[in-house]
Design a protein around this nucleic acid. Structure first.
Lengths: 233, 233
DNA sequence: GGACAATCGATTGTCGACAATTCTATGCAC
DNA sequence: GTGCATAGAATTGTCGACAATCGATTGTCC
C-alpha cells in the first residue's frame, strides 16, 4: 500500500532522472519504508544495518539520514545515531492545525481554477468513497480520502503549499486511523466531502474555503477527542 | 544584521549543544551566509572553496549542503554541484500565500493564549515601528516588523507552524524590500499592525485572524503589483 | 571559419580505514 | 545484591585517496 505519491517530495530534492540506478535514491526507499510503517517509531536506524538492507554504501545511507532528519521523519543525535522520529500526540495536533490552514487556502485557490473535468474526477472519487463506506472498508476509504485531497492540491496549482502539506502528512500518518475509526465518523466525513465538491463546482472561493475549514475542523476535533481518550502527551 | 533568530530552525536538527566546536555546525554558518546575502542567488557553492572559507572538512560541508538542499535554500544537481537556489517571482508569491494562511492560524491561536505582558511587548514594538517610519528608516522598520510577527508566533505556541513559516521566510527574504519600499506602504502597514494588536489584546480569535488576514492579504497584493512592475516569471 | 571529436582540468561521488564516542557487560568493593 | 569503576564491543564521525563525471579548451577535418 503506497501511501503517498512521491511526486510532491521531489520538488527540490535530487531530480527524478530516468533511471534510479544503484544507490541513487536510498532516500526514497528509506522514506517509503518509514512512512509505510516498516520501521517502528523510535526504532534505531543503524547505518551498518541499513547498508545491508538497501545494498547501498554508508555514504548514501548517511546522506539519506541527514535529509530525512531535516524533513522531520528521522531524529539524529550526535554520536548516538538516528531513530525514526516519534511524533507526539501534541505535535500531531499541531500538524493537523497547520493542515487545516493550508488546505483551506488550497481549496480557495482550487475554486478559481477548477475545470469541469476536475469536478468529474472529484465526483468519481466521492462515489468510490461512498462505496467503501457502505462496504465497511475503512482502509480503502482512507486511501481514497487521501486521493481526494491530493486531487484538490493538484487543481490549486500551488506547489509550495502542496509540498508542505504532503510532508506534514507523512509525519502524522500514524494518526490517520484514530479519526476515521470513530463511530459515525465515516458518514459525516462523507457528507463533508460532498459539500466541498459542491462548493468547488460552483467556483466560489470563499464557500470552498469555508467547506474545507468546516471539514478539517471536525477532523481536528475528532482527533483531539480520540487522543484525549488514548492518553499520553 | 542577523535576519532571523536561529532558534526555530533547530527544532529537529542537531541539538544546539553547549559549544559549537570545530565544524560542529557549518550548516548554521553557511545558512546564515546565504540568508544574509553573502552568496548571490544561483552562485555556485564549490565544496573545496567552502572548505577553506569555513575551515571545515568536506564531510561536514557535504552534510550541510544536503540539509540546505532539503530545506530549499540550496539546489544540488547530481555530479554538477550545488548552487544557491533562486526562488522565482512566481514561487515568492506562492510562499507569501502560504504565509498568509499560516500566520492567520497563528494569530487565532495567539489570541486565546495572550497575556497582558505579551500585549505590552507588542505595543512597545509597535511604538518603535512608528518611530522608524517617522525617521524614514525602512531597514529598521523591516527588522522590527520581523520581530513583531515572531513575537506573535511565540505567543501562539504552535511550534510546527512557527518552524514552517520561519523557513519560508528565509527562502523569500530577497523579496522583503519590494513591498515595504512601495510609496505609502509604511503608513498603511503601521495601521494594519495596530489593528492586529487591538484584536489580539481583546482576546478575540476570529477578530485576530481577520486582522492578520487583512494585513497579509494586502502584503500579497502589494508584492503582486511590485513584481508585475518588475517583470520576469 | 565552423562543426565535431578528443583531451585535459576541475569538481563531485564513493569507498575504506581509522579515530572518537557511546553503550554494554563484567568485575570488584562493600 | 547494589553501586561504581573499568574494559571491551558496537557505532558513529572524519579524513584521505581514488574513481567518475562534467565543462571547457584545444585540435582536426572539411
Amino acid at each position: 500500500m503506497k501511501t503517498t505519491s512521491t511526486a510532491l517530495l521531489e520538488t527540490h530534492g535530487q531530480a527524478p532522472e530516468g533511471m534510479a540506478r544503484g544507490g541513487a535514491s536510498v532516500y526514497l526507499k528509506l522514506r517509503e519504508a518509514i512512512v509505510d510503517g516498516r520501521f517502528q517509531p523510535n526504532e534505531r536506524l543503524v547505518e551498518a544495518d541499513l547498508e545491508r538492507a538497501f545494498g547501498a554504501g554508508r555514504t548514501a545511507i548517511r546522506a539519506a539520514l541527514v535529509r530525512l532528519d531535516q524533513e522531520g521523519l528521522v531524529e539524529r543525535q550526535p554520536n548516538r545515531g538516528a531513530r525514526v522520529r516519534l511524533v507526539s500526540d501534541r505535535e500531531a495536533l499541531e500538524i493537523e492545525e497547520v493542515r487545516v490552514a493550508l488546505e483551506q487556502m488550497l481549496a480557495k485557490h482550487a475554486a478559481t481554477r477548477i475545470k469541469p473535468s476536475d469536478v468529474a474526477d472529484l465526483r468519481r472519487i466521492l462515489e468510490d468513497m461512498t462505496a467503501r463506506v457502505e462496504a465497511g472498508d475503512p482502509l480503502g476509504y482512507s486511501e481514497l480520502n487521501a486521493r481526494f485531497h491530493e486531487t484538490i492540491w493538484a487543481i490549486a496549482d500551488q506547489g509550495v503549499a502542496a509540498t508542505l502539506v504532503a510532508n506534514l502528512k507523512s509525519q502524522s500518518i500514524r494518526f490517520q486511523y484514530r479519526t476515521i475509526l470513530q463511530p459515525g465518523r465515516p458518514d459525516r466525513s462523507l457528507r463533508e466531502h460532498g459539500l466541498i465538491v459542491e462548493a468547488l463546482a460552483s467556483g466560489d472561493p470563499d464557500a470552498s474555503e469555508a467547506a474545507m475549514r468546516e471539514h478539517l475542523s471536525r477532523v481536528v476535533e475528532t482527533l483531539k477527542q480520540a487522543i484525549a481518550r488514548h492518553r499520553n502527551t
